[in-house]
Design a protein around this nucleic acid. Structure first.
Lengths: 359, 359
DNA sequence: TTGTAAGCGTTATCAG
DNA sequence: CTGATAACGCTTACAA
């Protein structure tokens, strides 16, 4: 492996000069053009590659970002990650990605591993509780900047990027109402998930404003701690068992919505013919589902961008004069209309039925 | 940040001694038990963390693995990645993950970035051509060991883990035949994808052995270069337009199969009532689809394990005495039966129809 | 405009 | 059994 020393020898200059030239440093500005191009040429000819180890040792910065995903096989995390990766790569950083595999117990351990590697900053992905805010706060206090993406929480030290869940939920119902639905069932998300709470307040506030009646018999709570297709399936079965009329379901998220669709199909009900279904997130699945799923899109990749941008800014800011309050950024969701929602009228040519309509 | 020097001072020993103790090195074996525990205790009390930069500089190893995914938002890649990550973590390695975003042009660049970071080994994920074998070969020659996961290819230098596509395809048809299907349509994968070729030879060999007639009118080729839901949709529409009888579709992979199901549904045909559909891969989507998808499972996480294991072994082997031939490992696929396949008989109580059956 | 030299924190090789 | 000491390759004051 060719070192800076060899380049220095071949060019006749000192290693200091070579280093400055190769880094386009301040001091290199006023060196003869000749010197600079000569050194650069020789370096290229020799195939010189700076040694990252030495560089990091000197500068005490790794130019690596530690990422902790709640579940990297979840497209939700993967898409945010993509945003992060492509953003930081352009700035000369690289991501070290670790995965809790939905096991909250791993979280501390992963932080330790990453801090040991001296990452310049930390990002967590995924809204689950398995990424504990207080744990993170304790660890990074005064060490490295950290950003949480995909989770609304009011930390005093950690910056946060999350979708505006409340307006997302409102978008969803507004869409259903506009289609003519009045009997809307709700599958609420896991109790102790901030996102679930926020979405539900969105629903409630909109219902109040529009005088939409919320039938408590049409509200059901996911029993699982996490959101799965299976959970949506069971919740919908339970809903059907109540034998109340509804023409639409608003699910906590896309996975839940898919489960709901399956349960409706299994019960011989068509989507959207007999019942509309809307999800939340717009994970890749949504666009391929059968039927394709109307949903509220979180701009996942963009959230990755923003998170990475904030983190890199924090990294550049000297610790001393960082704002004492963290950045809490919320991004706007968007309605995506696909096949799974339609008017309760007669969208597919079949007679209007609704679910358990008397007709 | 507390260094080894401070530990040395506090304990009264030299840095050398401390280093040896803390690494449980050979020489530390025959040091007094007292010394060792004392040093360790003080180190812990001081909160000493070894500096990875210095360590790497010294040892010239990063204990980091470079991973290049064709598309990390594709659950196929993500699941393999999970296998890799959890395997190497247990051995003290960490993954630096980069993503071509399906852009083959990025591949070289990503390799360069990772090599610059002095990763100890390289793994590529995903079967696409956007991961070019020859490019990889050229780059890593004599530099770092490399393993490709998810792509069958006969490289002379790069080790490979891939599913046995041929027997996978055979499993699929055997299942359909066992169910009673004789008129089977095939959606072949992208022409220049090894996996597609292999799967097709599996189909052909089994057809020959079982005297199953392959109707060329029931064979269609994906037009897209990559596999998407959309591609499966269009292929199936084209198939339907031919107005030939078939009672089952064997799709190139899960995404294609989902597209096929959508097209069938759109045409008013039920799955599996009117037509069975089987996929390949068993990505997460398959288990949640409507209907849930019968498919051939690739043991993705396990492939990640195996790939990582081979890579770490290569890393430990001194370059001089590495086997000249790379490891080419093939893993067994498994049939996963879900809802999308059933006998052409009368599985759902509806009259038997088949697609374009005269009845 | 360029060179010298002092580290950065570890680890390995000696010598004792 | 333990201690000095010399690298590892690079950056950056400071000197010239």
């Amino acid at each position: 492996m060719v070192t800076i020393k060899e380049v220095a020898q071949k060019t006749g200059f000192s290693t200091a000069t070579v280093s400055m030239v190769l880094n386009n440093s301040r001091l290199a500005r006023n060196m003869s053009q000749e010197t600079r191009s000569h050194i650069k040429r020789i370096a290229r000819e020799l195939g010189y590659t700076p040694n990252h180890f030495a560089r990091s040792l000197r500068s005490m910065r790794s130019r690596a970002i530690g990422v902790i995903a709640r579940d990297i096989t979840d497209p939700y995390c993967a898409q945010i990650f993509r945003g992060i990766e492509s953003f930081i790569r352009r700035r000369g950083y690289v991501p070290i990605l670790t995965d809790t595999q939905c096991d909250g117990g791993q979280f501390e351990h992963l932080i330790e591993i990453l801090l040991e590697r001296r990452v310049d900053g930390l990002i967590t992905l995924g809204s689950s509780l398995s990424l504990d805010t207080t744990v993170l706060e304790g660890f990074v206090r005064g060490r490295v900047p950290a950003v949480m993406i995909g989770r609304e929480c009011n930390s005093q030290t950690i910056s946060t990027i999350a979708v505006d869940n409340e307006s997302g939920a409102r978008l969803g119902i507004e869409h259903l109402i506009a289609l003519g639905h009045r009997n809307i069932a709700f599958i609420k998300g896991p109790k102790d998930l901030t996102d679930a709470t926020r979405r539900w307040s969105g629903v409630c506030s909109l219902a109040q404003e529009t005088r939409l009646a919320l039938d408590r018999n049409l509200i059901i709570q996911l029993s699982e701690p996490a959101s799965t297709c299976e959970g949506g399936y069971r919740a919908t079965q339970a809903l059907l068992a109540r034998k109340r009329l509804f023409t639409a379901i608003m699910a906590f998220d896309d996975m839940t919505a898919c489960g709901a669709i399956r349960a409706l199909s299994a019960a011989g009900l068509g989507v959207p013919g007999d019942c509309s279904v809307i999800g939340f997130d717009d994970v890749a699945l949504a666009a391929s589902y059968n039927p394709t799923l109307s949903t509220i899109r979180q701009p996942l990749e963009k959230m990755g961008f923003i998170g990475a941008e904030i983190l890199l800014k924090l990294i550049k800011t000297p610790l001393a004069k960082q704002a004492s309050r963290p950045v809490l950024r919320s991004v706007k969701p968007a309605l995506v209309i696909r096949e799974s929602t339609a008017s309760p009228g007669n969208p597919t040519g079949k007679p209007r039925r609704g679910v358990f309509d008397k007709g």
